[in-house]
Design a protein around this nucleic acid. Structure first.
Lengths: 224, 224
DNA sequence: TCATTAAATGTCTCAACGACACTTTTAATA
DNA sequence: TATTAAAAGTGTCGTTGAGACATTTAATGA
């Protein structure tokens, strides 16, 4: 008889704040790796969860009180080396949220924190979480080149410049405002609002996501 | 204490034969769904497998004696409804192989068979395998638009026409020979062989994959 | 009033794909 | 041996959507 391996989920929740890409990390309070920073995740519980996506959302709620705007499966990581308890399997999700939406809750607890990527590079993380974050980052970057997923890092009202900055932060390259506006128009996802934002000098048009929008995939990547 | 759910893997192994896209199916001999066709998969065994990818390869070997040319994680399917035994989780891989490479072994057993997609649509499959196949197909089609993955359905030597036919079979749309040749050249994956194939009238140049090739992703999709 | 600055738009060029006509090759057949 | 048909492969043009860059618009403050 085969016993099922320990099955967990992990979330890589990204946000962008002030031109910095951040990942939500939680401090572990139990062994193994107690005291180290790790991704917010946990054990899949067949008694309460209707699916593993359900587990992912539950863990984000329990550990940081947040509900992401976007959640997608990344991939499964497994092996004997990733956990001292032996062979384990973790289903990893990556998710996006606006900084403002999550800020409050996270500041009330001291074991959850937004951590920038350079900081992560210097930390000693639990399990293979550093590797997982890098894979998630790569996927997010790739997806940013052919879709509008970065909007899920924005508040409900935003300007083209806000969107541009989030995209540039994620892919770490400048893009043409013109190219972005073409995509905003072509996607049909956005709606102009009767309001302008005084971000800089000339007031910028505010946009919101349409009520029933489809997330569009473009046929070309942004390139450089 | 939480008990881990039953964890399985399933493979959607595709091949193209004579202009028909086929999926490898195996007949179940145990409950549940005994006697029905299903995807070749099974239970992850921590005692023998070093990773879930390892499980996927092992199951393809055991059930059909094949070693795919390409294997990639699709996604995880989970829930209470997909298996009468309760909450289960299956990690699905999709894979590609040349028809010739697999033909022999599969013909020696009567519980493994290549099944075309129209046939699958009419069959009653075990679990949620019909849905899984459709998701895998969608992914394969998408990937075919921006990469050269279909080469993994070909034998070691092949012509441009062979490649063209495989691509057209997968995406169910005709493509321009010229566009394909541009991509073959741009990819740098291919090498002309000192040999020609007498497929039709004029003999066609044979190609092979370079010894150390990288699978290239193009920045645009093929379009119509 | 006018300079400044950022938002928004207009125009140019470039790269890659689709379309399609055209040339080349080779086996079958007259 | 010449002809022909079909598939392999090439040349070229139009389209599309990207980046680059200039221009116009609008708000602010000197």
């Amino acid at each position: 008889m085969i016993t099922s391996p320990l099955l967990t989920i992990d979330n890589v929740l990204f946000t962008v704040h002030d031109g910095i890409l951040k990942v939500l990390m939680v401090k572990r309070s139990i062994e193994p790796y107690s005291g180290l920073w790790s991704l917010p995740g946990g054990i899949v519980d067949p008694a309460t969860d209707t699916s593993t996506e359900d587990t992912a959302l539950r863990k984000l709620r329990e550990k940081a009180g947040v509900k992401p705007n976007y959640l997608e499966q990344l991939e499964v990581f497994s092996g004997h080396d990733r956990d001292p308890r032996g062979f384990t399997v973790t289903i990893v999700y990556y998710a996006l949220i606006g900084y403002q939406q999550a800020e409050v809750h996270i500041h009330t607890v001291d074991d959850a924190e937004w951590v920038s990527l350079p900081q992560i590079a210097q930390l000693n993380l639990a399990f293979d979480h550093k590797k997982i974050i890098n894979v998630a980052l790569e996927r997010l970057r790739q997806k940013t080149l052919y879709s509008m997923v970065p909007v899920f890092c924005l508040p409900s009202l935003f300007t083209i410049s806000d969107l541009k900055q989030v995209i540039e932060t994620i892919i770490e390259k400048p893009i043409q405002r013109k190219s972005l506006m073409r995509r905003v128009e072509a996607s049909g996802m956005f709606e102009e609002v009767d309001e302008k934002a005084a971000t800089g000098k000339r007031m910028a048009q505010l946009y919101k996501l349409k009520d029933n929008f489809n997330i569009v995939n473009f046929e070309r990547n942004l390139s450089f």
